[in-house]
Design a protein around this nucleic acid. Structure first.
Ligand SMILES: [Mn+2]
Ligand SMILES: [Mn+2]
Ligand SMILES: [Mn+2]
Ligand SMILES: [Mn+2]
Lengths: 220, 220
DNA sequence: TAAAAAATTTAGACAATCCTAAAAATATTT
DNA sequence: AAATATTTTTAGGATTGTCTAAATTTTTTA
């Protein structure tokens, strides 16, 4: 088993997440931006991850994650999301408070720990933001979902996932009542700015911007 | 608040533990041995910890922990021991499996995390090895206890603390029935090798070496 | 108390990770 | 297609923490 340093794990996870949406090729600048670091540092790291066969790296062109790399990244994502569940379910953290702590906890090295944690939490399938938790087998099972911004008038869905982990966004969601599981009905769509008028749980109607709606996913 | 790196925290904690038994002055070699590193590396680190006023360091003489250093060390010890309780109580780790994982978990930076964990665990006072957990106020409350090796024939005590965290020792204790809380009666003391014959929970009688008895403490 | 031994520090290197500035390659304009 | 802009890499240096080997200081021994 090839071992990765704390920093290598963070880079690999970033590359995995950038790869996730089916992009064939990830660029140096994208990685630098995601990790708040400089492109020069990224170039250094890409050589190392390439040598460890976590990525295929072609100078000046870009980066592609390997199967081995994806498998390592998924283990880290598994740990991250299980810890997030722990923090919310057991320690009563709010969903906007968990990300930074999980960013550290995901690097703790112990298979026993993570499997016992999984058991203790009752083998959860999704994290507090609705993201799927990779299994111990290394597989990610996604549920079919659709962007709130892609619904049309009178469509109904149940909030299943938020795609933005920022504190500001999550606190905004809390404030207006957008939580995992709520029922959302599209009342109106303003073509001028693509904002939506939505009804939440048959109770209240609010207006949300396209910025917001494109980060929210629902199941139908 | 002065911040310490992961490595600085480990050094400071080692110095704290070496200081604990009232030693006025800790030596470079002792620290190196405890941390499995070389004296030269220790000398380097002592300069840094001294500059951060965690220790008083006199070249060629030795090291003394400052009040500030002790306070920082106690915060790390608090985290270490709370995580050990979590691993044993919630994740069903055996007491010989927790140390290395807690050694990593103790460095996670989040006050909210550790205070919520404390609450979640029901504000435990002792870790799985019977060591006292420093309070959020930074104070360590010890209970009076006595070394099993200092009991005399017919004395009775309740096992309250094991002073050795090694896997081999803890598994040995498990095997012979030495657990926190058991009642121990000294049946005989062999003056030749200072081994003890003890009765556990009025049920079984075993013989233990001085090596073992000096690592076991009881309350009377 | 002088020599030998042990403990400790310093000197010099190395690995990991980061940075800035300069160079090189690629992409976009005109 | 040449000039310009952007992206990416390399060069060189800083920081943290490690090590070995050599120098220095302290302690022990004879
Ligand atoms: Mn991380
Ligand atoms: Mn999440
Ligand atoms: Mn540690
Ligand atoms: Mn312990």
């Amino acid at each position: 088993m090839i071992s990765l340093s704390y920093t290598e794990e963070n880079y690999l996870k970033a590359i995995y997440h950038l790869s996730y949406l089916g992009k064939e090729c990830i660029t140096t600048n994208e990685i630098a931006e995601m990790l708040n670091t400089k492109p020069a540092s990224v170039s250094d790291m890409l050589k190392k991850l390439s040598q460890k066969e976590m990525i295929n790296y072609v100078k000046y062109y870009g980066v592609e994650i390997t199967d081995q790399g994806k498998s390592c990244a998924l283990k880290i994502v598994r740990k991250h999301r299980l810890w997030e569940v722990f923090l919310v379910e057991k320690l009563k953290f709010n969903w906007d408070e968990v990300h930074d702590v999980a960013e550290e906890l995901e690097h703790i090295q112990s298979n026993l720990l993570i499997e016992r944690l999984d058991h203790f939490l009752g083998f959860p399938k999704y994290d507090p933001h609705g993201d799927p938790i990779p299994g111990a087998d290394g597989l990610l099972r996604e549920k079919p979902q659709i962007g709130l911004c892609d619904l049309t008038i009178n469509d109904i869905g149940f909030l299943s996932n938020v795609k933005e982990a920022g504190v500001a966004f999550l606190q905004y969601c809390d404030k207006v009542g957008l939580k995992i599981g709520v029922k959302i009905k599209v009342i109106d769509k303003v073509s001028f700015d693509n904002s939506l008028e939505i009804e939440i749980d048959n109770i209240k109607t609010i207006s949300i911007s396209k910025e917001v709606s494109k980060n929210i996913f629902v199941t139908r």
